[in-house]
């Protein structure tokens, strides 16, 4: 029975990692920007969700408001700042690094430094008995929502016009532009979607991982590990990488506790040696 719980647990954690990494991967795939503000989008999204939840008591509203607000912020950052260094990746990455600090200080100022925990909706507030053990229902919900988002993103990429444009842009931005695809608009849109996904992860993780100064940096590292393992720019890679890391992390901590500090990094190092481009990455 403990095995079942460990696996479920790894998958649930993996799904959180997927939500977190998907946006980062999308943005890198299209724009070649390593978005260091990604963790801040997660944290600010979580905090906004927390405030909405406290004011209205609605988890759904918290999700919607947080995702919309952070997506807007993301779009604004792309439009008014990153755009100025079009296709100049190093200044763009540095710019996102600066935003990381600005958001960190802003959130410390607004939400304070004590760790805060989002309340989960009433229906998820119990655990499912499993023999001698018990498993929290909320984590099963996380697994479900992760699958829904993964399916949604796949459909978006494969079966919508914007998805087609996105794939064209990833493959060859210049040719895509020559074919009349408005790559600039696409950039803003994808940056907003990526930011929104991070915010979604923030709100969903809030009841499990809690929100606090420094969480932005911690989750950023997790997200990087996942996209490196999965392959930068690939959604499929982000999903595979996230599940792999989630499960390995759980088993590592459970069965090799003395390596708990780097259960996440050992698989990354191994993958980098065997497949430098990641599981599903292309050159």
């Amino acid at each position: 029975m403990t095995w079942v719980i460990h696996i479920l647990n790894g998958i649930a954690f993996g799904m959180l990692l997927f939500l977190l990494a998907a946006g980062l991967s999308l943005i890198y795939g299209l724009m070649k920007i390593l978005n260091l503000t990604h963790g801040s989008f997660y944290l600010v999204g979580g905090y906004i969700g927390l405030t909405v939840m406290q004011r209205t008591g609605s988890f759904v509203l918290a999700l919607v408001v947080a995702v919309a607000a952070v997506a807007l912020v993301g779009a604004a950052i792309e439009r008014f700042f990153l755009r100025r260094f079009h296709l100049d990746e190093l200044p763009q990455t540095l710019l996102t690094f600066g935003f990381l600090f600005i958001f960190a200080d802003l959130s410390l100022w607004i939400w304070g430094g004590n760790p805060l925990m989002l309340n989960m909706p009433e229906i998820f507030q119990h655990s499912m008995p499993m023999g001698y053990y018990a498993y929290p229902v909320y984590r099963l919900f996380l697994i479900a929502i992760g699958l829904v988002v993964a399916g949604g993103l796949w459909w978006f990429q494969e079966h919508t016009r914007i998805g087609t444009m996105l794939r064209a842009g990833v493959d060859d931005a210049e040719i895509a532009r020559a074919l009349g695809i408005n790559v600039s608009l696409l950039f803003t849109l994808i940056f907003a979607v990526g930011a929104g996904l991070a915010a979604l992860a923030g709100v969903l993780a809030g009841p499990v991982l809690s929100l606090y100064p420094g969480a932005d940096f911690e989750v950023l590292i997790f997200a990087f590990v996942v996209v490196i393992v999965g392959g930068l720019g690939s959604l499929r890679g982000a999903l595979a990488g996230a599940l792999l890391i989630g499960i390995l992390d759980d088993f590592g901590k459970a069965f090799f506790p003395e390596f708990a500090l780097f259960t996440v990094f050992v698989p990354m190092a191994v993958i980098l040696v065997i497949r430098p481009t990641g599981l599903f990455g292309r050159r």
Binding site: F13, E218, P257
Partner: peptide, 14 residues
């Protein structure tokens, strides 16, 4: 001995 910043205590609790 969970490391500092352990996000998920699931494995330890199990």
């Amino acid at each position: 001995w969970p490391p500092i910043g352990t996000a998920d205590f699931g494995p330890y609790l199990t």
